[in-house]
């Protein structure tokens, strides 16, 4: 098929436009997970504490801690993992504090997000970038 210069320009521009579009992939899976948790409600920034190392010694086992005063549940997401879900902590009546510690897997350097659902139905979130390195001889 013979392309006229007009055709070529049009195809080229379209191709360039497509590559310039923001990558949907993981970022929106995370947003979907947050939307499902909050039912689409507004999410305030802050009011949730997320403790994670700045540099993870090994991405296979990264210790983290989440806490939010007055939260009934805290959802943790890993925005750069193949699937963002990590854990959702639901605190019951016998709970002693709205905090939890666990160890998670991070596929690479990424943001870890914590979203808290408060007793009054409002939501708050925070996030932290965790660097995940490739080891040396230790592997």
């Amino acid at each position: 098929m013979d392309f006229t210069r007009r055709d070529t320009l049009a195809i080229g521009a379209a191709a360039a436009a497509v590559t310039a579009l923001p990558m949907p992939a993981m970022a929106s899976l995370t947003e979907d997970a947050i939307a499902e948790f909050t039912g689409g409600a507004d999410v305030a920034d802050g009011g949730v504490d997320l403790d994670a190392p700045e540099i993870a010694e090994n991405g296979n086992t990264v210790p983290i801690e989440v806490s939010a005063e007055g939260a009934t549940a805290i959802m943790v997401l890993a925005a750069g993992n193949p699937t963002p879900g990590v854990a959702t902590f639901n605190f019951g009546d016998a709970s002693g504090a709205h905090r939890a510690k666990t160890r998670i897997r991070l596929a690479g350097t990424q943001d870890v997000v914590a979203v808290a659902k408060m007793a009054d139905g409002s939501f708050a979130k925070t996030q932290k970038t965790v660097k995940v390195t490739i080891g040396g001889c230790g592997g």
Binding site: N58, T61, I134, G136, C137, G138
Partner: peptide, 24 residues
């Protein structure tokens, strides 16, 4: 010294058997 992102130790074995985060 750092060898890539690994902090090189003296290679002691007083801590073995060891639980490695790498293979849990």
């Amino acid at each position: 010294m750092m060898i890539r992102a690994d902090h090189l130790s003296q290679g002691q074995i007083n801590g073995f058997p060891t639980y490695r985060l790498k293979n849990a």
